[in-house]
Design a protein around this nucleic acid. Sequence first.
DNA 1: TTATATCCCTATTTATTTTCTAGAGAATAT
DNA 2: ATATTCTCTAGAAAATAAATAGGGATATAA
Lengths: 154, 154
Amino acid sequence: MFLTKRSKYALRALLFLAREQARGTILIQEIAEKEKIPKKFLESILLELKNNGLLSSRRGKGGGYALEYSPEKISIGSVIRLIDGPIAPVRCVSQSAYAPCEDCLDEKTCVIRYLMKETRDVIATVLDKTTLQELLQREDILKAEATEGFVFEI
Amino acid sequence: MFLTKRSKYALRALLFLAREQARGTILIQEIAEKEKIPKKFLESILLELKNNGLLSSRRGKGGGYALEYSPEKISIGSVIRLIDGPIAPVRCVSQSAYAPCEDCLDEKTCVIRYLMKETRDVIATVLDKTTLQELLQREDILKAEATEGFVFEI
DNA sequence: TTATATCCCTATTTATTTTCTAGAGAATAT
DNA sequence: ATATTCTCTAGAAAATAAATAGGGATATAA
Protein backbone atom coordinates (compact mmCIF):
# COMPACT_ATOMS: atom_id res chain seq x y z
CA MET A 1 0.00 0.00 0.00
CA PHE A 2 2.14 2.84 -1.13
CA LEU A 3 2.34 5.83 -3.40
CA THR A 4 5.90 6.51 -4.53
CA LYS A 5 7.40 9.98 -4.49
CA ARG A 6 7.73 9.67 -8.22
CA SER A 7 3.99 9.48 -8.76
CA LYS A 8 3.27 12.04 -6.08
CA TYR A 9 5.64 14.41 -7.91
CA ALA A 10 3.95 13.53 -11.19
CA LEU A 11 0.55 14.43 -9.77
CA ARG A 12 1.83 17.67 -8.30
CA ALA A 13 3.40 18.63 -11.61
CA LEU A 14 0.24 17.78 -13.54
CA LEU A 15 -1.90 19.76 -11.13
CA PHE A 16 0.47 22.68 -11.51
CA LEU A 17 0.26 22.49 -15.30
CA ALA A 18 -3.51 22.20 -15.10
CA ARG A 19 -3.74 25.28 -12.88
CA GLU A 20 -1.47 27.32 -15.13
CA GLN A 21 -2.85 25.97 -18.39
CA ALA A 22 -3.74 29.42 -19.68
CA ARG A 23 -0.08 30.47 -19.65
CA GLY A 24 0.89 27.99 -22.37
CA THR A 25 4.16 26.13 -21.87
CA ILE A 26 5.79 26.05 -18.46
CA LEU A 27 9.44 25.42 -17.61
CA ILE A 28 10.58 22.34 -15.70
CA GLN A 29 12.62 24.75 -13.65
CA GLU A 30 9.55 26.63 -12.46
CA ILE A 31 7.61 23.51 -11.53
CA ALA A 32 10.63 22.12 -9.70
CA GLU A 33 11.03 25.29 -7.65
CA LYS A 34 7.39 25.97 -6.86
CA GLU A 35 6.60 22.36 -6.05
CA LYS A 36 9.91 21.61 -4.32
CA ILE A 37 10.77 18.68 -6.58
CA PRO A 38 14.40 17.80 -7.43
CA LYS A 39 14.78 19.16 -10.94
CA LYS A 40 16.63 16.27 -12.56
CA PHE A 41 14.18 13.82 -11.07
CA LEU A 42 11.27 15.88 -12.32
CA GLU A 43 12.82 15.99 -15.80
CA SER A 44 12.64 12.23 -16.07
CA ILE A 45 9.08 12.17 -14.77
CA LEU A 46 7.82 14.79 -17.20
CA LEU A 47 9.59 13.02 -20.02
CA GLU A 48 7.81 9.81 -19.13
CA LEU A 49 4.48 11.61 -19.05
CA LYS A 50 5.23 13.14 -22.41
CA ASN A 51 6.32 9.84 -23.94
CA ASN A 52 3.02 8.40 -22.83
CA GLY A 53 1.03 11.13 -24.43
CA LEU A 54 -0.10 13.11 -21.40
CA LEU A 55 2.10 16.13 -22.00
CA SER A 56 3.40 18.06 -24.97
CA SER A 57 6.71 19.89 -24.95
CA ARG A 58 8.83 22.37 -26.86
CA ARG A 59 12.59 22.74 -26.67
CA GLY A 60 14.64 25.90 -26.81
CA LYS A 61 13.80 29.43 -25.77
CA GLY A 62 10.13 29.83 -25.00
CA GLY A 63 9.86 26.07 -24.63
CA GLY A 64 8.47 24.04 -21.76
CA TYR A 65 5.70 21.61 -21.00
CA ALA A 66 1.93 21.74 -21.32
CA LEU A 67 -0.96 19.35 -20.81
CA GLU A 68 -1.87 17.47 -23.95
CA TYR A 69 -5.49 16.99 -22.79
CA SER A 70 -7.84 19.09 -20.74
CA PRO A 71 -7.78 18.30 -17.01
CA GLU A 72 -11.13 16.53 -16.96
CA LYS A 73 -9.79 13.95 -19.39
CA ILE A 74 -6.94 12.86 -17.11
CA SER A 75 -7.83 10.49 -14.31
CA ILE A 76 -5.60 10.08 -11.29
CA GLY A 77 -5.71 6.32 -11.69
CA SER A 78 -4.25 6.52 -15.17
CA VAL A 79 -1.38 8.67 -13.95
CA ILE A 80 -0.53 6.40 -11.05
CA ARG A 81 -0.68 3.30 -13.24
CA LEU A 82 1.58 4.98 -15.74
CA ILE A 83 4.19 6.02 -13.22
CA ASP A 84 4.00 3.44 -10.44
CA GLY A 85 2.61 0.52 -12.37
CA PRO A 86 -0.43 -1.56 -11.41
CA ILE A 87 -2.73 -0.36 -8.66
CA ALA A 88 -3.52 -3.86 -7.41
CA PRO A 89 -1.94 -4.98 -4.12
CA VAL A 90 -0.87 -8.23 -5.81
CA ARG A 91 -0.25 -8.86 -9.48
CA CYS A 92 -2.64 -11.82 -9.64
CA VAL A 93 -5.59 -9.42 -9.33
CA SER A 94 -4.27 -6.70 -11.61
CA GLN A 95 -6.41 -5.81 -14.61
CA SER A 96 -3.67 -3.93 -16.41
CA ALA A 97 -0.73 -6.21 -15.57
CA TYR A 98 -1.91 -9.63 -14.46
CA ALA A 99 0.70 -12.18 -13.46
CA PRO A 100 0.18 -15.40 -11.50
CA CYS A 101 1.81 -15.95 -8.10
CA GLU A 102 4.69 -18.41 -8.47
CA ASP A 103 3.78 -20.27 -5.31
CA CYS A 104 0.00 -20.30 -5.61
CA LEU A 105 -1.53 -23.73 -5.25
CA ASP A 106 -4.88 -22.88 -6.80
CA GLU A 107 -5.70 -19.39 -7.89
CA LYS A 108 -9.42 -20.07 -8.19
CA THR A 109 -9.79 -20.94 -4.53
CA CYS A 110 -7.21 -18.53 -3.09
CA VAL A 111 -9.01 -16.37 -0.56
CA ILE A 112 -6.20 -13.89 -0.19
CA ARG A 113 -6.55 -13.28 -3.89
CA TYR A 114 -10.31 -12.98 -3.41
CA LEU A 115 -9.87 -10.27 -0.80
CA MET A 116 -7.17 -8.46 -2.73
CA LYS A 117 -9.42 -8.39 -5.76
CA GLU A 118 -12.03 -6.63 -3.67
CA THR A 119 -9.35 -4.25 -2.42
CA ARG A 120 -8.08 -3.54 -5.91
CA ASP A 121 -11.60 -2.78 -7.07
CA VAL A 122 -12.35 -0.20 -4.42
CA ILE A 123 -8.99 1.49 -4.95
CA ALA A 124 -9.50 1.57 -8.71
CA THR A 125 -12.98 2.99 -8.27
CA VAL A 126 -11.71 5.89 -6.21
CA LEU A 127 -8.69 6.67 -8.35
CA ASP A 128 -10.28 6.20 -11.76
CA LYS A 129 -13.36 8.26 -11.03
CA THR A 130 -11.29 11.29 -10.03
CA THR A 131 -9.76 13.65 -12.59
CA LEU A 132 -7.28 16.48 -12.41
CA GLN A 133 -10.12 18.90 -12.86
CA GLU A 134 -12.06 17.52 -9.94
CA LEU A 135 -9.00 17.88 -7.77
CA LEU A 136 -8.64 21.51 -8.81
CA GLN A 137 -12.26 22.13 -7.95
CA ARG A 138 -11.81 20.42 -4.63
CA GLU A 139 -8.73 22.53 -4.05
CA ASP A 140 -10.78 25.69 -4.48
CA ILE A 141 -13.26 24.46 -1.93
CA LEU A 142 -10.55 23.51 0.56
CA LYS A 143 -8.86 26.88 0.14
CA ALA A 144 -12.12 28.74 0.63
CA GLU A 145 -12.80 26.74 3.77
CA ALA A 146 -9.32 27.37 5.08
CA THR A 147 -9.61 31.15 4.72
CA GLU A 148 -13.24 31.50 5.69
CA GLY A 149 -12.93 29.19 8.65
CA PHE A 150 -15.61 26.73 7.67
CA VAL A 151 -15.51 23.15 8.82
CA PHE A 152 -16.46 20.67 6.21
CA GLU A 153 -17.89 17.31 7.28
CA ILE A 154 -16.91 14.39 5.11
CA MET B 1 -0.08 -0.10 -3.62
CA PHE B 2 1.56 -3.29 -2.60
CA LEU B 3 1.31 -6.29 -0.34
CA THR B 4 4.73 -7.65 0.61
CA LYS B 5 5.56 -11.34 0.50
CA ARG B 6 6.09 -11.13 4.21
CA SER B 7 2.49 -10.23 4.92
CA LYS B 8 1.18 -12.59 2.28
CA TYR B 9 3.11 -15.37 4.00
CA ALA B 10 1.79 -14.23 7.36
CA LEU B 11 -1.78 -14.44 6.11
CA ARG B 12 -1.23 -17.85 4.58
CA ALA B 13 0.28 -19.12 7.81
CA LEU B 14 -2.55 -17.71 9.89
CA LEU B 15 -5.15 -19.22 7.59
CA PHE B 16 -3.36 -22.55 7.87
CA LEU B 17 -3.35 -22.36 11.66
CA ALA B 18 -7.01 -21.35 11.65
CA ARG B 19 -7.93 -24.30 9.44
CA GLU B 20 -5.98 -26.76 11.59
CA GLN B 21 -6.93 -25.22 14.89
CA ALA B 22 -8.40 -28.46 16.20
CA ARG B 23 -5.01 -30.18 16.02
CA GLY B 24 -3.47 -27.97 18.69
CA THR B 25 0.05 -26.75 18.01
CA ILE B 26 1.51 -26.94 14.53
CA LEU B 27 5.17 -27.01 13.52
CA ILE B 28 6.79 -24.19 11.57
CA GLN B 29 8.23 -26.92 9.41
CA GLU B 30 4.82 -28.17 8.38
CA ILE B 31 3.46 -24.73 7.54
CA ALA B 32 6.60 -23.92 5.55
CA GLU B 33 6.28 -27.08 3.49
CA LYS B 34 2.56 -27.04 2.89
CA GLU B 35 2.44 -23.35 2.11
CA LYS B 36 5.75 -23.25 0.23
CA ILE B 37 7.25 -20.56 2.42
CA PRO B 38 11.02 -20.40 3.11
CA LYS B 39 11.29 -21.85 6.60
CA LYS B 40 13.73 -19.37 8.12
CA PHE B 41 11.75 -16.48 6.75
CA LEU B 42 8.56 -17.95 8.14
CA GLU B 43 10.20 -18.38 11.55
CA SER B 44 10.78 -14.67 11.81
CA ILE B 45 7.24 -13.91 10.68
CA LEU B 46 5.61 -16.26 13.18
CA LEU B 47 7.82 -14.88 15.91
CA GLU B 48 6.66 -11.39 15.10
CA LEU B 49 3.04 -12.51 15.18
CA LYS B 50 3.65 -14.19 18.50
CA ASN B 51 5.45 -11.17 19.98
CA ASN B 52 2.43 -9.12 19.02
CA GLY B 53 0.04 -11.44 20.72
CA LEU B 54 -1.63 -13.12 17.75
CA LEU B 55 -0.01 -16.50 18.26
CA SER B 56 1.00 -18.68 21.17
CA SER B 57 3.89 -21.13 21.00
CA ARG B 58 5.53 -24.02 22.82
CA ARG B 59 9.13 -25.11 22.50
CA GLY B 60 10.57 -28.60 22.57
CA LYS B 61 9.07 -31.86 21.48
CA GLY B 62 5.36 -31.58 20.86
CA GLY B 63 5.76 -27.84 20.52
CA GLY B 64 4.66 -25.54 17.73
CA TYR B 65 2.39 -22.60 17.09
CA ALA B 66 -1.30 -21.99 17.60
CA LEU B 67 -3.70 -19.08 17.21
CA GLU B 68 -4.08 -17.09 20.39
CA TYR B 69 -7.57 -15.91 19.43
CA SER B 70 -10.37 -17.51 17.49
CA PRO B 71 -10.34 -16.71 13.76
CA GLU B 72 -13.30 -14.36 13.88
CA LYS B 73 -11.37 -12.08 16.22
CA ILE B 74 -8.48 -11.55 13.82
CA SER B 75 -9.03 -9.02 11.04
CA ILE B 76 -6.93 -9.03 7.92
CA GLY B 77 -6.30 -5.33 8.30
CA SER B 78 -4.74 -5.81 11.72
CA VAL B 79 -2.39 -8.47 10.37
CA ILE B 80 -1.26 -6.37 7.42
CA ARG B 81 -0.72 -3.31 9.62
CA LEU B 82 1.30 -5.40 12.01
CA ILE B 83 3.56 -6.90 9.37
CA ASP B 84 3.72 -4.30 6.59
CA GLY B 85 2.98 -1.17 8.55
CA PRO B 86 0.35 1.42 7.73
CA ILE B 87 -2.28 0.71 5.12
CA ALA B 88 -2.48 4.29 3.91
CA PRO B 89 -0.90 5.12 0.54
CA VAL B 90 0.85 8.09 2.13
CA ARG B 91 1.78 8.59 5.76
CA CYS B 92 0.00 11.95 6.02
CA VAL B 93 -3.36 10.15 5.87
CA SER B 94 -2.45 7.21 8.10
CA GLN B 95 -4.58 6.72 11.22
CA SER B 96 -2.13 4.35 12.89
CA ALA B 97 1.14 6.04 11.88
CA TYR B 98 0.57 9.63 10.83
CA ALA B 99 3.55 11.66 9.68
CA PRO B 100 3.55 14.92 7.73
CA CYS B 101 5.08 15.17 4.25
CA GLU B 102 8.41 17.03 4.45
CA ASP B 103 7.70 19.03 1.32
CA CYS B 104 4.02 19.77 1.81
CA LEU B 105 3.14 23.44 1.50
CA ASP B 106 -0.22 23.24 3.24
CA GLU B 107 -1.64 19.96 4.39
CA LYS B 108 -5.14 21.36 4.87
CA THR B 109 -5.53 22.29 1.22
CA CYS B 110 -3.54 19.43 -0.34
CA VAL B 111 -5.85 17.66 -2.74
CA ILE B 112 -3.57 14.69 -3.24
CA ARG B 113 -3.86 14.15 0.45
CA TYR B 114 -7.62 14.56 0.19
CA LEU B 115 -7.84 11.83 -2.42
CA MET B 116 -5.43 9.54 -0.62
CA LYS B 117 -7.50 9.87 2.51
CA GLU B 118 -10.49 8.65 0.57
CA THR B 119 -8.38 5.81 -0.80
CA ARG B 120 -7.11 4.86 2.62
CA ASP B 121 -10.63 4.77 3.96
CA VAL B 122 -11.97 2.37 1.36
CA ILE B 123 -8.96 0.09 1.74
CA ALA B 124 -9.29 0.09 5.52
CA THR B 125 -12.99 -0.65 5.26
CA VAL B 126 -12.39 -3.74 3.15
CA LEU B 127 -9.46 -5.07 5.14
CA ASP B 128 -10.76 -4.33 8.61
CA LYS B 129 -14.21 -5.77 8.05
CA THR B 130 -12.79 -9.13 6.95
CA THR B 131 -11.62 -11.75 9.43
CA LEU B 132 -9.73 -15.01 9.13
CA GLN B 133 -12.96 -16.84 9.76
CA GLU B 134 -14.74 -15.10 6.92
CA LEU B 135 -11.92 -16.01 4.60
CA LEU B 136 -12.19 -19.66 5.62
CA GLN B 137 -15.92 -19.57 4.95
CA ARG B 138 -15.31 -17.95 1.61
CA GLU B 139 -12.72 -20.62 0.88
CA ASP B 140 -15.30 -23.33 1.42
CA ILE B 141 -17.62 -21.62 -1.01
CA LEU B 142 -14.91 -21.19 -3.63
CA LYS B 143 -13.87 -24.81 -3.29
CA ALA B 144 -17.44 -26.02 -3.61
CA GLU B 145 -17.87 -23.91 -6.71
CA ALA B 146 -14.65 -25.16 -8.19
CA THR B 147 -15.61 -28.81 -7.79
CA GLU B 148 -19.29 -28.45 -8.61
CA GLY B 149 -18.66 -26.24 -11.59
CA PHE B 150 -20.71 -23.26 -10.48
CA VAL B 151 -19.94 -19.78 -11.65
CA PHE B 152 -20.24 -17.12 -9.02
CA GLU B 153 -21.03 -13.56 -10.05
CA ILE B 154 -19.46 -10.85 -7.98
C1' DT C 1 20.55 -36.96 32.95
C1' DT C 2 21.01 -37.14 28.33
C1' DA C 3 19.37 -36.70 23.78
C1' DT C 4 16.39 -34.60 20.83
C1' DA C 5 13.02 -31.57 19.18
C1' DT C 6 11.55 -27.13 18.68
C1' DC C 7 11.09 -22.35 18.98
C1' DC C 8 14.02 -17.97 19.90
C1' DC C 9 17.29 -14.46 18.77
C1' DT C 10 20.90 -11.70 16.43
C1' DA C 11 23.31 -10.71 12.63
C1' DT C 12 24.29 -10.66 7.89
C1' DT C 13 23.82 -11.25 2.99
C1' DT C 14 21.56 -10.69 -1.21
C1' DA C 15 18.25 -8.78 -4.24
C1' DT C 16 15.24 -5.32 -5.69
C1' DT C 17 13.31 -0.89 -5.99
C1' DT C 18 13.36 3.94 -5.42
C1' DT C 19 15.45 8.29 -5.45
C1' DC C 20 18.41 11.25 -7.27
C1' DT C 21 22.53 13.08 -10.11
C1' DA C 22 25.81 13.76 -14.10
C1' DG C 23 26.74 15.08 -18.40
C1' DA C 24 26.37 15.30 -23.15
C1' DG C 25 22.99 15.67 -27.19
C1' DA C 26 19.36 17.87 -30.04
C1' DA C 27 15.89 21.32 -31.17
C1' DT C 28 14.43 26.15 -31.17
C1' DA C 29 14.32 31.24 -31.07
C1' DT C 30 16.65 35.36 -31.74
C1' DA D 1 26.17 31.63 -33.71
C1' DT D 2 24.56 31.51 -29.14
C1' DA D 3 21.72 30.91 -25.33
C1' DT D 4 17.99 28.28 -23.87
C1' DT D 5 15.45 24.37 -22.97
C1' DC D 6 14.03 19.76 -23.35
C1' DT D 7 16.01 14.75 -24.39
C1' DC D 8 18.51 10.80 -23.50
C1' DT D 9 21.70 7.40 -21.38
C1' DA D 10 24.00 5.93 -17.64
C1' DG D 11 24.58 5.04 -13.21
C1' DA D 12 25.35 6.22 -8.08
C1' DA D 13 23.27 6.29 -3.62
C1' DA D 14 19.87 5.09 -0.44
C1' DA D 15 16.15 2.53 1.17
C1' DT D 16 13.51 -1.54 1.58
C1' DA D 17 12.43 -6.38 1.11
C1' DA D 18 13.66 -11.22 1.06
C1' DA D 19 16.20 -14.71 2.52
C1' DT D 20 19.96 -17.19 5.08
C1' DA D 21 23.24 -18.50 8.83
C1' DG D 22 24.26 -20.16 13.13
C1' DG D 23 23.81 -20.92 17.45
C1' DG D 24 20.96 -20.25 22.07
C1' DA D 25 17.13 -21.40 25.18
C1' DT D 26 13.72 -24.47 26.62
C1' DA D 27 10.62 -28.37 26.85
C1' DT D 28 9.84 -33.28 26.47
C1' DA D 29 10.80 -38.05 26.58
C1' DA D 30 13.50 -41.95 27.51
